[in-house]
Design a protein around this nucleic acid. Sequence first.
DNA 1: TTTGCTATTGCCAACATTTGCAAGCAGCGT
DNA 2: ACGCTGCTTGCAAATGTTGGCAATAGCAAA
Lengths: 142, 142
Amino acid sequence: MDKHQHKDPAEKLSELGYRMTPQRMMILNAVHNATDHISAEEIYSQVRGQYSHLNLSTVYRTLELLKNLKLVTESDFGEGKVRYHSAEKGHHHHLVCQKCGDVNDVNEAVFTSLTDKLSGDYNFTADLRHLTIFGQCAKCNK
Amino acid sequence: MDKHQHKDPAEKLSELGYRMTPQRMMILNAVHNATDHISAEEIYSQVRGQYSHLNLSTVYRTLELLKNLKLVTESDFGEGKVRYHSAEKGHHHHLVCQKCGDVNDVNEAVFTSLTDKLSGDYNFTADLRHLTIFGQCAKCNK
DNA sequence: TTTGCTATTGCCAACATTTGCAAGCAGCGT
DNA sequence: ACGCTGCTTGCAAATGTTGGCAATAGCAAA
Ligand SMILES: [Mn+2]
Ligand SMILES: [Mn+2]
Ligand SMILES: [Zn+2]
Ligand SMILES: [Zn+2]
């Protein structure tokens, strides 16, 4: 059994008055089973395979909800559409290279000095989930 | 005269093979004269007052160009549209409160420890212009 | 000037995402 | 079982932004 068992999503939803519908379940699974960051359109066509009645708006609305519940995170790598990631896969941020397009993960620990400073100097509690930083990567810096 | 005179935009453009057209001039002025962060649509209707032939696509394309030349910066405060800011008004980032919607400026010095760390640990040269950080502001933290 | 090259524009259609609305469904009290 | 209420969905339309394309305008060489 998983010692770090989080509250299961259905429970988390109903606690706040929401319902765990088949659509939401399937969308959540799609994000969870994705090997990489997945887009709304990709989720849509994947889930549509088993439930052809699904509407794209429902995908967007569900992702918005899951994002607010911190079950998924959203990232914009500048490709004109946004991508999603299961929150269970740990917190991290992204470095996107503006030259070669490479995307790399950064541990969120790198940001603690920043959030501490924002908290100390501005009394601002930063909500830094899945931040995307643009710049030039190691390879392109050579 | 201005001791810190930057190269004038027209010069900067032509150096790179671009042209300073009336449209570009008017759009640049609109961003420059704005007291606050201005949206594409706002620029459009403002410039249209003096030049009714202008097309919205031109506004977007011009802003994209000016952004690449670092004459303007772009920020997304999460209102569903993006806003622009003249680069001459100094570098800074933004703290957006998720509770009250308040937007505050942060000096970019707050981010030097972060960029240093990204440079040292990842050899990644971060391009942090006009970053937007979401969270909870001082007022809402009380 | 005239010509030629290419950057730029307007127009329109596509795209990613959000919204309004009316129908459907779950839960709850009667 | 019935009806109320509020959550959820599909559908279609709207929104903000980008892209293709053909016509035009700016610039420089001839
Ligand atoms: Mn990620
Ligand atoms: Mn600004
Ligand atoms: Zn790179
Ligand atoms: Zn606030």
